[in-house]
Design a protein around this nucleic acid. Sequence first.
DNA 1: TTCTTAATTGAGCCGTCAATCAATAACAAC
DNA 2: GTTGTTATTGATTGACGGCTCAATTAAGAA
Lengths: 190, 190
Amino acid sequence: MPRIGMEPQRRDALVRATISEIAVSGAADITVARIARRAGMSPALAHHYFGSKDNMLLAAMRHVLFVFAAEVRGALVMADTPRERLTAIVRACFAPSNFRDEVVAAWLNFYVQAQREGQTRRLLHIYHARLRSNLMYALRPLSDDPERLAEGIGAMIDGLYVRQALRRDNLTSAASTDLVLDYIEKALTR
Amino acid sequence: MPRIGMEPQRRDALVRATISEIAVSGAADITVARIARRAGMSPALAHHYFGSKDNMLLAAMRHVLFVFAAEVRGALVMADTPRERLTAIVRACFAPSNFRDEVVAAWLNFYVQAQREGQTRRLLHIYHARLRSNLMYALRPLSDDPERLAEGIGAMIDGLYVRQALRRDNLTSAASTDLVLDYIEKALTR
DNA sequence: TTCTTAATTGAGCCGTCAATCAATAACAAC
DNA sequence: GTTGTTATTGATTGACGGCTCAATTAAGAA
């Protein structure tokens, strides 16, 4: 019994279901049928709204990136000094909404997909550039080689994500945050 | 025209081809047919020697891990002091045989596969444990929180691998090495 | 009421891919 | 030269997954 105005709900449910499904099945074994079932609809309807499986994956990625960006932006408004800005960025990276198991697993799979899929690659480059730019802005007054340090921080964050995706005995998000903040602290005091 | 004693060559060729194919096609789009074609034989022969596609992927991973372990071991024999040991390990991680684009791409895909495939996961845990143990042994005389620092170093290395897999403008292996060594240096001088 | 439009799905087409099998060819051993 | 073993492949099978389509239902517009 079709009610009207379902498109937003359906799209939203599919995006959520895609992320969950990536986490439990892995990107390799994902199927439109499974995503649709989890979202409570037929595969045909999923295709109706998204056109293709690739579009579903891209929409899921955009959602993850959007939430991430919002978290960072939100954390930055309350930060005044460069040091506070750094802390805010790192905290945002490991905030619960971003560092949830589901989302972390999704990230890992986006990285893989970016190796061959142009659009995914482009989105990931935008994320990289934005994080780098945020870090640089905060680091410039504090470090004599901000570029280098930003690269190191970014790499460590990425690495902690990857490791989180594989762990059974989870490192808490707080421990990850502290590890990166320690690194920054040590790297700044010369 | 079949010659005898082909098994070792065929297995080797298939392992190499699997790694190359992961790099160019991505783990999602990999097929036995493509691997076999690249290795210069029919898909049926690939199945004859390995039994299944999963076995091929596992064999490729074991090969990568074996080369990695050999590189680390080789670098460590010439190291006497703890500091030299640290440098040797990091150098080995980014040595050409391990940090080649092909191999880096393979690593990323192993991580993804480890999310759901038990054997892959186990192999990856062994690698993690070994790297961690090597680092700890060198760090214990130098740091008052070697555990923490080993985790940080491991994460940064993993992160640099992931980033390498996506880059067009490649960071040289030397730059990656320096970044990690810098981190260690800063983290040790308290 | 009638028409249009959105929502929704079951059935099915088409392609692909892992895995199997039967058949062939070369070699070795006796 | 007969027998057995290894190497090798083309053809085939069986399953599965992305995607399409025609058909159905209901809501709103005219």
